[in-house]
Each structure stands twice: as structure tokens, then as C-alpha cells.
Simulated assay, not measured.
Amino acid sequence: MTTMKTNAIRRPPLGKWFAFQAGVILLMGLVFWIKSPVAAYSALLGGIIFFLPNVYFALKAFRYSGARAAKQIMGSFYKGETGKLILCAILFTVVFKSIKPLDVAALFLTFAIMLVTNWLTPVVFGGKTQQS
């Protein structure tokens, strides 16, 4: 009797990834605290503007797994990305309209650093995934 080993697509370790990214956001807040409290909370807001839509995307995108769910997977990725962009725009709008004073440079710099962090997070964790 032979046993077949399946090469199932594994889900990324989202909990670890999000914890790492939250740590980077807190670190950015501490770094900007050196400049001023306004820069610190602006940096935290920039990180949150990135983080919350990213969590939304991940929850939508990784709802389904397996080859049989290919259509649902593609649909959930598109819906997740669309929702992420809309949520990001809403959060930027809310912050710019309601938070005064605001250090725009700290906000955008942290947002940009979080974009790079998002690309590097799988590398930091060695590309390892977990079973669903």
C-alpha cells in the first residue's frame, strides 16, 4: 500500500505576522516620541491606517482553502483587496478631518514603513505556513 502525500496549500501564520507588524507600529510610535508626542500618535495612526485594512484583507482572503474552492478564493481575494483600499481611504479621510494637530510626515512615513514591513514579514518568518 502506498501513501500519497498531498501538497496542500497552507495558510500563512497570520497571528504571528500581525503580532510582528503591531510590534513594528509600536516601535515607530516610540521612535517618533523622541521628536514629539504629536509625531508619536501620528506615527501610530499611520500604522493603524495600514494595519486595520490589512487585517480585513487577510480575513477575507484566507477564508477558503483547497483546490475545490478556487472560485471562492479568487472572489474573496478581490473582495478583500477592494475592501482594504476603501477602508484605507476612509481611515485617511477620518484622520485628516478629525485629528488636529497632526504630523503628516510621521503618519506617511510609518504607513510607508508598514508597506515595506508587509512585504518583508514572510521573509522574516522564513516563508513558513501553517495547516488549515
Rank of each mutant, 00 (worst) to 15 (best):
M1I: 14
M1V: 13
M4Q: 13
M4L: 14
K5T: 15
T6D: 14
T6Q: 12
T6G: 08
A8Q: 13
I9K: 12
R11G: 07
R11C: 08
P12I: 04
K16N: 13
W17P: 03
F18R: 06
A19W: 09
F20A: 14
F20M: 13
A22L: 13
L26H: 06
L27T: 07
L27K: 03
M28H: 00
M28T: 00
M28P: 00
V31Q: 03
W33R: 14
S36W: 09
P37E: 14
P37Q: 12
V38I: 15
A39Y: 04
Y41N: 09
Y41E: 10
L44Y: 02
L45Q: 05
L45C: 08
G46H: 04
G47H: 00
I48M: 07
I48Y: 01
I49M: 08
I49D: 00
F50M: 03
F50E: 02
L52I: 13
P53V: 08
P53T: 06
N54M: 06
V55T: 02
V55R: 02
Y56M: 04
Y56R: 03
F57H: 06
F57P: 02
A58V: 07
L59Y: 08
K60T: 06
K60Q: 10
F62C: 07
R63A: 05
R63C: 01
Y64S: 05
Y64A: 07
A67C: 07
A69E: 05
K71V: 10
I73Q: 05
M74G: 09
K79L: 15
K79T: 11
G80Y: 03
E81H: 09
T82E: 12
I86G: 08
C88L: 15
I90R: 01
T93Y: 09
T93M: 09
V94A: 13
K97A: 11
S98W: 04
S98Y: 02
I99C: 01
K100W: 05
L102M: 07
L102I: 12
D103R: 03
T110V: 14
T110A: 05
F111Y: 15
A112G: 14
I113V: 15
L115S: 03
T117W: 00
T117H: 01
T117R: 00
T121M: 06
V123M: 14
V123A: 14
V123I: 15
V124R: 07
V124T: 10
V124F: 10
G127A: 06
K128Q: 12
T129P: 07
Q130S: 11
S132P: 11
